[in-house]
Design a protein around this nucleic acid. Structure first.
Ligand SMILES: [Mn+2]
Ligand SMILES: [Mn+2]
Ligand SMILES: [Zn+2]
Ligand SMILES: [Zn+2]
Lengths: 154, 154
DNA sequence: ATAGTACTGAGACTGAGTCTCATTATAGTA
DNA sequence: TACTATAATGAGACTCAGTCTCAGTACTAT
């Protein structure tokens, strides 16, 4: 069972429009290099490290890839994940996909998306909001990762 | 309400014995430098960055602090957290304190411990185990952080 | 076309974290 | 206590993921 089996089909045209809008709203163009990075993230469907991106887009210079990722973060298109290992990973912003969580392999670093049922999210959010409020925190969101070993590392 | 209000009182002697045991089990001594790092973590009660540790232990050389943290991780005494910012943070291993989660300030990077009720943990674990199993993952644990702004950054 | 501005690639640079090595402390033994 | 073997330490060189600079290129608008 795929966690996303019941998701609406991906509308590439609408997605492109949104990405372009967000880039332009932050004063940038939707150029070939930026599109190349965004499409690598769309196609792979799971968080990518810089070296993943280099393998998928051999022509793209490292400095450009890093720069694009920063710009895409500022435009709210990409989110950077802090990983267990030393390598950051990047994925599409949640409102371009859907709220989800991660299975993180402590052995190889691979990250897989996973989406719990909505009832779970509601319960989690409620409890956590209360805890945060009691410490004077203003909650913006949460991050829930499962650490373990992936199928091929077991 | 403090999240840890109902925790058993901290037994420093028993704690020291456990730390020494774990270090010796991994072939190391419980020396002054290592004790200095461990006690900084105990006293502060929340995850510390290297620069936090430097401020708390001005005499301790940077290279020694880093080395101690690696050794303490290998001995299962310390856990390294990957943060939102570029700086790792370190805390005592969960079985020396208790299972807990983090409020992470996206503005200043500060991390506060928070402990949800056991019923919450049971529910979370159950749902997550199922999701992980369906992806062929073997779960070792989870990590749940709340991102937001701390009281002084709001 | 021209000007103004954004984008790009090459590579220099930064700094958190690691490694090396010479010196010092410790535990064990006689 | 003296001697030996091994572990620990501090200084600083080093690594390399990530950032910054800058000269050249591509857009965009008029
Ligand atoms: Mn969630
Ligand atoms: Mn938990
Ligand atoms: Zn793996
Ligand atoms: Zn803060």
């Amino acid at each position: 069972m795929k966690a996303s089996a019941d998701r609406a089909p991906f509308d590439r045209a609408a997605f492109d429009r949104t990405v372009r809008e967000r880039l332009e709203r932050s004063g940038r163009r939707y150029t070939g290099g930026r599109r190349s990075v965004v499409e690598a993230l769309v196609e792979s469907g799971h968080p990518l490290s810089i070296s993943d991106i280099e393998k998928l887009r051999p022509g793209l210079p490292r400095s450009s890839a890093y720069r694009h990722l920063v710009e895409l973060q500022q435009a709210g298109i990409v989110r950077r994940l802090s990983a267990e290992d030393e390598f950051s990973r990047y994925e599409l912003a949640e409102d371009l996909t859907e709220h989800h969580h991660h299975l993180v392999c402590v052995s190889c670093g691979r990250v897989v998306d996973v989406t719990p049922p909505k009832s779970f999210e509601i319960a989690v959010t409620e409890v956590l909001d209360e805890l945060a409020t009691s410490e004077g925190f203003t909650v913006q969101g949460h991050r829930l990762d499962l650490l373990g070993r992936c199928a091929s590392c077991s």
